[in-house]
Design a protein around this nucleic acid. Structure first.
Lengths: 109, 109
DNA sequence: TACTTTAATCGTAATATTGCAATGTATTAA
DNA sequence: TTAATACATTGCAATATTACGATTAAAGTA
């Protein structure tokens, strides 16, 4: 049904899934990497950099902004985006708790 | 169009996105957490544990297996699943390189 | 053999995601 | 004011994902 039964899972599990979903598209990965790489905050050069149409990039940026991973600031006709440091750090804590689980058991198979 | 233009991105970006997509559903997060938690490798108790229908769980398990994050072993009429340690470690390297990027810039906004 | 158990697969419905052309909205420049 | 620039939004088509009933396949049990 394409609908995720979020109510069956813990808040933590849904949170992990939501962050992961944001990274689940290479364009959003590329956008974030670019924002990290460029010292000056980048606006719509992302469209050229990534190579997708402007509305598509705008949509991906919106998702990242809604999750709180980036911020946008209007500067004249341009918009300047950058990583939301504090939230990025918080996100890392959540993801690392999941990724860094200790593997206590020996493999069964 | 619902189709991701993977060819526009680097192999690394696609790899990150593919791993992230696997974690982008709380059921798969829950499955993995359960496999980590339980000392004995778990088979279809996952169906009871997670609370989704058996074909649904089976489908999620298949995705995780295709990505190489878990292994399955047939034991009689049951199937025993566990984390694929080596691949999990490799996945962590890829994800951490992405997540742990240094934020050199000051925020612009 | 026939029956049971367990899990995979098939088929399908409902919903979500991706991508972009067209359009709208500010802001700046002329 | 008019035109240009930069980006957001809308609307829609194509594809992907999620979920599960029904069925199948494989192995154990009576």
């Amino acid at each position: 049904m394409g609908i995720t039964k979020s109510e069956k899972f813990t808040e933590q599990q849904n949170q992990i899934a939501n962050f992961a979903k944001a990274f689940g598209h290479p364009a959003r990965v590329a956008i974030l990497q670019h924002l990290f790489k460029i010292n000056t905050c980048i606006c719509g050069d992302l469209v050229e950099e990534i190579g997708l149409a402007q509305p598509t990039i705008s949509q991906h940026l919106k998702e990242l902004k809604n999750l709180g991973l980036i911020k946008g600031n209007i500067e004249g006709t341009k918009v300047c985006y950058c990583i939301h440091k504090e939230n990025w750090t918080k996100m890392k804590l959540v993801m690392n708790e999941f990724l860094d689980q200790d593997i206590l058991t020996t493999e069964c198979c």
